[in-house]
Design a protein around this nucleic acid. Structure first.
Length: 398
RNA sequence: GGGGGGAUGUCCGAGUGGUUAAAGGAGACGGGCUGUAAACCCGUUGGCUCUGCCUACGCAGGUUCGAAUCCUGCUCCCCCCA
């Protein structure tokens, strides 16, 4: 572990140990030397666009890195991209993002700021919203636009690929990297962090800074955390995320569902210490799951989550806590597909299909596709189970 | 401004007048196996008052006994030339 007494070279090497790129070569170390001489600390920038409402594990990879800088006494500048979220970062995207409304963005931005507190010591963080400076006059935007050429922007992979595939790239998207770069100008960033998919934007930030007569930032890129599918980048829109605010059981269960192939990466990107050697993949995963729950909740919650998980999925018992749900019986029988559809947000046809496939149980007994209408007495007080993980305790109403 | 190409279900992608709710793949979901992993097997994947009915192949009309497939207009996208 590095400490305040480490030399700049040691600190730089330690900070970059798990990064993919630390560019330009030697720059981070030079910055560390230079600020030490000036008697100040580094201004380390991270920008997050609140395009989705919640922070997830993928965000925490970079946030943890930010925290390391913080631990060494540097100034963290967290930029919530309330303004850039309206533009849409094309990084890694194969198509134009749908635009969010101003209200959505504002609501998301506030949530983000709150949630960052789960990962960072926000008391020490300089939190900024980039609408503060990006809501600029047109002539200022023109000045910004003059700093960069089309050729520079088209060097970028995503744009090049989309061009080649005859997919649209809007001028607005082209502008995005400039706006991000301007953030660096506005906060006088010495270092900017990001995922590897941000490399182009981060590097372009240097050009923008130079154009504005500022000193250029060093950049550090972190690996991208795969989602719970083990393949694609973790993101809310792909539904493969574990959110910082997920409940303990969710964090635990989702972690166990991660394919083993991705396990090593998860350990590396999310934990300080590697798993003890000799630990089976299964146990390594369980350990990881516990530690993640403990990180975002606490140790007791981790124990409980594991117990609850084992109860349901290892011992095949009902969960201890089952959400209640009421059903309306009227005088006749209850149409099960309608009830299932209503309870779990699916269509009746879908519910019917699930039942035909043996995915619906009442009181542990699998129902056949013929048992669509049941007497209310057979349901009242019983546990309805759909698939392996959805349960409701039914209560008659009316 | 001119010319050409394209728009199909969650996604990719077949299909150019009739057994097409629409091949195939991916993803997802259910069942089995299991470590809620991987691999593998089986099945499902528009809606519904479900042995049938309704809605669907960019949008709106039209031709036809019958259209995703033909015609007309419109919208959007891409490429080339200027």
């Amino acid at each position: 572990m590095a400490s305040g007494s480490a030399t700049p070279a040691q600190a730089a090497a330690w900070l970059a140990r798990d990064a993919v790129d630390s560019l330009p070569a030697g720059e981070l170390e030079r910055k560390l030397v230079s600020v030490a001489e000036q008697g100040r600390s580094l201004r380390v920038k991270l920008g997050i666009d609140p395009t989705a409402p919640d922070l997830h594990l993928g965000h925490t990879v970079v946030l943890r890195k930010l925290q390391e800088f913080q631990g060494l006494g540097h100034q963290v500048v967290l930029i919530v991209g309330d303004y850039t979220a309206r533009v849409g970062d094309p990084s890694g995207r194969s198509q134009i993002r749908p635009l969010l409304t101003g209200e959505q963005v504002d609501a998301n931005a506030r949530r983000f700021a709150d949630q960052a507190a789960h990962v960072l010591d926000v008391g020490e963080v300089e939190l900024r919203f980039n609408g503060e400076w990006l809501d600029m006059a047109t002539h200022e935007l023109f000045a910004l636009a003059r700093t960069t050429t089309i050729a520079q922007l088209l060097e970028r992979d995503d744009f090049a690929k989309r061009q080649a595939a005859h997919e649209p790239v809007s001028v607005l998207e082209l502008l995005y990297p400039l706006l991000q770069g301007y953030d660096s100008v506005a906060v006088k960033a010495d270092v900017e962090l990001g995922g590897t998919d941000q490399k182009f934007n981060l590097l372009l930030g240097r050009d923008i800074q130079r154009a504005y007569g500022e000193e250029e930032q060093a950049i550090l890129t972190m690996p991208i955390l795969p989602g719970t599918d083990g393949v694609r980048k973790m993101s809310k829109s792909l539904g493969n995320e574990i959110a910082v605010l997920d409940r303990p059981e969710q964090i635990y269960a989702k972690t166990l569902r991660v394919p083993d192939d991705a396990l090593a990466q998860w350990w590396e990107l999310l934990c300080d210490e590697p798993p003890s050697p000799g630990l089976s993949p299964r146990d390594a995963k369980r350990t990881l799951a516990r530690s993640l729950v403990a990180r975002f909740h606490d140790e007791a919650a981790a124990q409980d989550a594991e117990r609850a998980f084992d109860r349901v999925f290892v011992d095949h018992e009902l969960p201890e806590e089952i959400e209640d749900a009421s059903f309306h019986a009227g005088d006749g029988e209850v149409h099960l597909p309608a009830l299932v559809a209503e309870l779990f947000g699916m269509s009746r046809s879908e519910a019917r299909r699930l039942q035909e496939q043996g995915g619906v149980r009442i009181g542990g007994a699998m129902l056949s596709g013929a048992e669509l209408d049941l007497a209310p007495e057979m349901l009242d007080g019983q546990v309805l189970q759909v698939g392996k993980r959805r349960h409701r305790r039914l209560h008659r109403r009316g």
